[in-house]
């Protein structure tokens, strides 16, 4: 299955993809397109824990600053440091190379109940 087929999306435009025992979290291409040129990204540290819906990162385009929320609860186990130095890469790829953090979580089942498949998410936007 492709990345997009595997991921679940939130109303606030984050995605989560199960990756072995971990979960990869990022922002959808729709969110990136709406933001425009990405110029700043602030990610949490490994070991930080967040509840579902909590702000874990900040992103800014030329025009505006936005918060990024946890689609499911969990603890940060890996951060995409390369993106912090070159946030403009998100404009090219926000999936395979443009994920934000990887987390461990034991509440995926319940937290993912209100998340949508990419197709449903896209349909919701229209």
């Amino acid at each position: 299955m492709s990345f997009k087929e595997e991921m679940l999306c939130s109303n606030s435009h984050e995605y989560v993809v199960k990756d072995g025992n971990a979960y990869t979290i990022g922002l959808t291409d729709y969110a990136i397109e709406q933001l425009g040129d990405i110029v700043f990204l602030e990610l949490p540290s490994v070991g930080d824990s967040f509840g579902k819906g909590e702000t874990f990162a900040n992103i800014e385009s030329v025009k505006a600053a936005s918060e990024i929320y946890m689609p499911i609860a969990g603890e940060i186990i890996e951060v995409n440091e390369e993106l912090v130095d070159a946030p403009e890469k998100l404009n090219e790829d926000c999936y395979e190379g443009g994920w934000l953090v990887k987390i461990s979580s034991n509440s995926y089942q319940q937290d993912s109940e209100d998340l949508m498949t990419y197709d449903d998410y896209k349909a919701e936007l229209e």
Partner: peptide
């Protein structure tokens, strides 16, 4: 263009990329 309400006008905020 991405259109926004600016000062009561429906205006283009960007066509491709603000930086470009």
């Amino acid at each position: 263009a991405k259109m926004v309400d600016f000062a009561g006008w429906y205006m283009p905020v960007q066509y491709t990329s603000i930086i470009e």
